[in-house]
């Protein structure tokens, strides 16, 4: 088991960590999810048939585990909202995200992109991360997400639109602030 782990770790660990991090934006949660991914992978490694590449297989498992994390988070949030009977304010609740040290070093525009990613839907965010941060091509992304390549293209297009829109709004707000001061 250790040998399999080491091989996977050497080949993919930092990529895997980064993918999950950008999905959840919390290092502690990322560590937990990565651990969960490895457990699943090591338990089912013997069943891996090699129909897709090892990397896309690993990432598709990571996708499932991350999805599950969000599902549980949503469940928890709904229970919380029910209990306090909160309205819209409660809907804004997010996981306890702490900006990583890497974020602090970014310039304003990159910080905006980082923040604007949260305006994308879950699917859109996945595509943006896989395509541009993880550098998977359309076909590999489709394999990981178990989608058609057309769906990847459509979602990517929409995600870029959402990001553009969000960037424009932030820019306008900033300009407004400057004018006021």
């Amino acid at each position: 088991m250790k040998a399999t782990f080491e091989e996977l770790y050497d080949k993919y660990h930092q990529d895997l960590f980064q993918y999950i991090f950008y999905m959840v934006k919390d290092k502690q949660q990322t560590e937990d999810i990565v651990q969960e991914v490895y457990i699943k992978v090591l338990r089912s490694y013997q069943h891996f048939k090699g129909e897709s590449s090892e990397k896309t297989w690993l990432f598709s498992i990571a996708r499932h585990v991350t999805f599950d994390y969000f599902r549980k988070l949503k469940k928890k949030r709904n229970k919380f909202l029910e209990f306090f009977n909160w309205g819209e304010e409660g809907e804004q609740l997010q996981s306890d995200q702490q900006a990583p040290e890497e974020y602090v070093l970014l310039d304003d525009q990159m910080k905006q992109i980082y923040t604007c990613m949260e305006h994308c839907s879950y699917d859109q965010k996945q595509v943006i991360i896989l395509r541009f941060i993880q550098d998977f091509n359309i076909k590999e992304t489709a394999e990981i997400l178990d989608w058609t390549t057309s769906k990847v293209k459509t979602t990517q297009h929409r995600a870029l639109k959402v990001l553009q829109q969000c960037m424009m709004t932030s820019l306008r707000e900033e300009e407004g602030d400057h004018e006021e001061s």
């Binding site: 782990f5 660990h13 457990i39 890497e102 974020y103 070093l105 990159m110 870029l160 990001l163």
Partner: peptide, 29 residues
């Protein structure tokens, strides 16, 4: 331009060592 900027987002690294990660996985299993 946007795609280029997305590609430039910082690489996020796991600071734990391989051994640490393995031990945690083993303990969890």
């Amino acid at each position: 331009q946007l795609k280029e900027q997305l590609r430039k987002l910082p690489k996020i690294e796991d600071k734990r060592t391989k051994e640490e990660v393995f031990q945690q996985i083993e303990a969890q299993m």
